[in-house]
C-alpha cells in the first residue's frame, strides 16, 4: 500500500519550506511556516495509525486502538505551533507599524 499520508505530509513540509525561502511577503512566509508545522503534525498522526484501529478511549467495544502517543505529541505540537504563529504575526504587525509595509525588500531598503 502506498503511504499517501506520508507523501502528502512531506509534500506539505517541502512546499512550506519553498514558500519560506522564496517568498518576499512576510504574511506569506508565516503561512509557509504554518504549512511546515501542519505537515509535521500530519506526519506524526499518520505514524500512530494502526490498521483497523479506533480512537483510544476505552469502552470495551473495540479490540484495536491506534497508538495514543503520537496523538498526545501532536496536541503539544499544535499548541506550540499556534504560539509561534501568534508571536510571528505580532512581530509582523510591529514591522508593519514601523515601516508601513510587509515586503521584506522594502523593509531592508528602509533600514539603510
Amino acid at each position: 500500500m502506498i503511504p499517501y499520508y506520508y507523501i502528502a505530509s512531506i509534500a506539505l513540509i517541502a512546499l512550506g519550506f519553498y514558500i519560506v525561502i522564496a517568498k518576499k511577503n512576510l504574511i506569506k512566509i508565516i503561512i509557509g511556516l504554518d504549512m511546515m508545522d501542519t505537515g509535521v503534525n500530519l506526519l506524526l498522526i499518520s505514524i500512530g495509525y494502526v490498521k483497523g484501529g479506533t480512537a483510544p478511549i476505552e469502552n470495551g467495544n473495540y479490540p484495536i486502538y491506534v497508538d495514543p502517543i503520537p496523538q498526545a505529541l501532536v496536541l503539544t505540537a499544535i499548541v506550540i505551533g499556534v504560539s509561534v504563529m501568534a508571536l510571528a504575526l505580532s512581530i509582523a504587525i510591529g514591522l508593519y507599524k514601523n515601516t508601513g509595509t510587509v515586503e521584506i525588500d522594502e523593509i531592508r531598503r528602509l533600514r539603510e
Binding site: 500500500m1 506520508y6 519550506f17 497508538d67
Partner: peptide
C-alpha cells in the same frame, strides 16, 4: 532545496510501514 527535502524524507519514510504495525 525543497525537492531535496522531499526526496530525502520520502526515502526515509518509505521504510516505515503505514498502518501495518
Amino acid at each position: 532545496l525543497a525537492i531535496l527535502i522531499f526526496i530525502v524524507l520520502g526515502l526515509a519514510f518509505a521504510k516505515i510501514p503505514f498502518g501495518n504495525v
